[in-house]
Simulated scan of single mutants.
Amino acid sequence: MAMSAREIGLRTVSGIVLAGAAGLVIWAGGVWFLGIMLVACALLSVEWAMMSAARAWRLMAGAIGLGLFAAVISAFVGQLSLALVMLVFCAAAAGLFARSRGQEALDASYGVLYLGWPSILLIWLRNGDTPADPHMGLYWTIFAFMTTWTADSLAYLVGSSVGGPKLWPRFSPNKTWSGFVGGLAGGAVAGALMGVFLDMGIGLWGALLGLAAAAATMAGDLWESALKRRYGVKDAGKLIPGHGGLLDRVDGLMFAAVVVACGRLVSLWLNGGGA
């Protein structure tokens, strides 16, 4: 269904405001980035619980949020291994909490892992400054966000303009193969440009990482579409005008963050831990 000019304008303005706010916090880093991540975790916990466990969403949002807070703070203080252990433990605890009350909310405990992995990896990326380059953490975080946003935007623009065969009509009837190809191309170009101009030590290999991040972005979008179809909702929330909920806006980023973090690990290995 085509959107009206008013809806497109609202979506555009909301996107610009959101991108500007995110850019400032990413640049600031430190406790500012931790703060926005904790706020995001709280909002995402509520959206996920309302979507997956409507009859017990308050209890499940609290359980999921506490688990995410514990994991994110552990990652922020440099305890990544502990953060990963906390995710598994808190997911299990949330599952037992839901089951003990006879709720259909057992699915909601999956949200600790679904929302937690990308959250702690984004913290790890942003805190990834090195003695050789105190801006490396900033560069890699920008890479993750920009490849995601470029892929998402190009997929939407190309898909809307070109149309054509549907990518996965069962779960996401509006997405097309043309948009998918456009998103891949956008992510690859963005990755190549940032890999060179941000001096991240990956050069034109950034194009391959950008391509992988773009593929992950669209996989995340499709995965959330399937989840929303399962739970019978159109949007995860109504927080962002023209976009739906926060989860609707960051679904691709959550998958792309994992891919970019893997790229960061490979870069560290290839450069002997110094890049």
Rank of each mutant, 00 (worst) to 15 (best):
M50G: 11
Y110L: 15
F69H: 04
A108V: 03
V233W: 05
L167T: 10
A75P: 05
G30M: 05
A91N: 04
R58T: 13
S109E: 03
S74R: 03
A19N: 00
Y114I: 11
A216L: 08
I120K: 01
A83L: 01
T176P: 09
I16E: 08
W269E: 15
L247R: 02
G252I: 02
V250E: 04
R126C: 13
A216G: 10
G252W: 05
R101I: 10
T148D: 06
I73C: 12
G274L: 15
G29K: 06
W205T: 00
G237Q: 09
L211H: 03
K234Q: 12
H243Y: 10
V250S: 06
H135E: 15
G187Q: 12
R99K: 13
K175A: 12
G78M: 06
A155P: 05
L270W: 14
C90T: 15
W223P: 10
G179H: 11
S74V: 05
W149I: 05
A70K: 02
A40S: 13
N127L: 13
W27H: 11
A22S: 15
V233T: 07
E224K: 05
D221I: 09
I123N: 08
L34N: 06
A92N: 05
H135Q: 15
V31H: 11
A40L: 13
P173M: 09
F255C: 12
T141N: 07
W168Y: 14
V181T: 12
V46I: 15
L115I: 04
